[in-house]
């Protein structure tokens, strides 16, 4: 038995491979984004900055890529580091609220810059009591 939501880094020689688990599809998405920001910036606090995202895609994997890519775009242009994510998935429609703080070089520099999210072997799988997905981040 594991905690309902979790992520762990698995071995991947070139890039960053993260295994994400969640009891629901919404939890998987939320945890995937938390993992991505952890890789890029390390610890972060909610200091009242909030962004809303709504997306629609043809399948859950494409939706996950679009969601994480949208967050990459926001962090790159607005210099926001997000730490909490409330995600609601209805079919292939997503609405999410991401909360965080401004980028602070003293606390957030030195992480791995993620260039993109790979489709390679990307499949959200339903196991007995959780959804699981392995995501490769290109760094």
């Amino acid at each position: 038995m594991y905690l309902t939501m979790s992520f762990e880094e698995l071995d991947h020689t070139a890039d960053v491979l993260i295994r994400v688990r969640g009891a629901t599809m919404s939890e998987v998405f939320s945890e995937a984004s938390r993992a991505m920001f952890h890789v890029m910036y390390g610890p972060c606090e909610d200091r009242g900055i909030m962004r809303q995202i709504t997306l629609d895609a043809e399948d859950p994997e494409s939706l996950l890529i679009d969601y994480l890519s949208e967050l990459l775009f926001i962090t790159d242009v607005e210099n926001i580091v997000f730490c909490t994510f409330d995600v609601d998935i209805r079919g292939t429609r997503l609405s999410a609220v991401a909360r965080g703080e401004p980028f602070d070089p003293a606390r957030h520099a030195g992480g791995a810059l993620i260039k993109g999210i790979s489709y390679f072997d990307l499949a959200i799988v339903k196991e007995k009591d959780a959804y699981v997905v392995d995501i490769i981040f290109d760094i």
């Binding site: 494409s62 890529i65 990459l72 260039k115 993109g116 489709y119 390679f120």
Partner: peptide, 26 residues
């Protein structure tokens, strides 16, 4: 990075149109 991300999605959606079968969506 954004050019690659944007066009990958477009090309991924057009696979059926050109009847291209690929072993890896990337």
């Amino acid at each position: 990075h954004q050019v690659a991300t944007d066009h990958l999605r477009v090309l991924e959606k057009s696979l059926g149109k050109y009847r291209i079968r690929i072993p890896d969506r990337q």
